[in-house]
Design a protein around this nucleic acid. Structure first.
Lengths: 168, 168
DNA sequence: CCGCTGACTTAGGATTACAAAAGTCAGCTG
DNA sequence: CAGCTGACTTTTGTAATCCTAAGTCAGCGG
């Protein structure tokens, strides 16, 4: 898919990789599963722990980190006859991970074949059709994995500054 | 985004979640970074280790697991005057993760703000426009994170079999 | 057949992730 | 103001993950 473009790939420093920095935040199993639950509408501590299948200490630590990272926010709520508590809501930053979760689910459905079919169906609210993550270019074309070129971007740090892409 | 639909979310067993099973395969940092490199065209052992920034034992273990899981395959190659060796190529199953990597990169670009901008630009080969991961429904509509309904799917295992979705 | 090289493996140790079980704590109810 | 409850925290212990440093090993070139 990409060959000679990457001949000097070693000159690109990986310290500035967006995938790596995204994985700093969501790069472990329980974090992504907690976000799955949040996107499904789960909001309370013990629901998160039980539905994700994780112990309470882990749920507490991960939720705290997700709040610190700005993917979830705590909001007070009050059930009648109960004390005030906080629930966890997705922020825009957290909701923006939905394409990642969707792409993962789609891949799991397609390749980790469970003969019974997917256990969850995500629908477009307006029309009821199934939602997928798709690759598309800014010109509006559908893109397949083989149709891609990778090039240095503006934020690239190069081992050799002389050949860095123009930064006006 | 989804409320009453999920009132009985606890009746859904999570043992059959596609996201969880996808994360069994790619749910750690180094695996996804190795796949990033593979999608950028890296094929040789020490290039993987160096570019991902991971030690040799870890690279060996992860690459072996990726081959066992069918995301990479080994192919013999021979440089003139050198012995035959194997390189690692993406299989269709591995290449199918490109939407996941793209969605992650896009999120990292948008939210883990590096003021210099993204370090990599992924272009559509045919037209040069930037490639994004987008949510779209089967009817062709663009979908935003707020436009989504989650429903039980055909493969759902329920705590109460009486209310399981029809499985003909 | 000796040495070089790329691709690993082995050994040892640090760090992180996780579970189970028990304890804490705030504040509403009675 | 005692008890209950949801939401944690603490403790203890195990397993996974990762690092560095030092081997091993196959086979081609000399």
């Amino acid at each position: 898919m990409t060959d000679d473009l990457l001949a000097d790939r070693d000159a690109w420093l990986n310290t500035n990789c967006s995938i790596a920095s995204a994985l700093e935040v969501v790069g472990n199993r329980s974090t992504l599963l907690l976000l799955r639950e949040a996107s499904f509408g789960t909001r309370r501590f013990d629901d998160f722990a039980r539905r994700v299948g994780v112990s309470e200490p882990v749920a507490a630590a991960r939720l705290r980190q997700l709040v610190a990272d700005g993917l979830l926010e705590r909001r007070p709520y009050r059930e009648p006859g109960r004390r005030t508590r906080d629930e966890y809501h997705l922020t825009p930053k957290g909701a923006a991970l939905l394409p990642v979760l969707t792409a993962l689910r789609q891949w799991g459905d397609a390749w980790t074949a469970d003969p019974a079919g997917p256990s969850v169906r995500v629908e477009h609210h307006d029309c009821g059709a199934v939602v997928h993550a798709r690759l598309r270019c800014a010109a509006g074309h559908d893109v397949t994995p083989g149709d891609i070129d990778v090039r240095p971007g503006p934020g690239l740090l190069r081992a050799d500054p002389a050949v860095a892409p123009k930064t006006p």
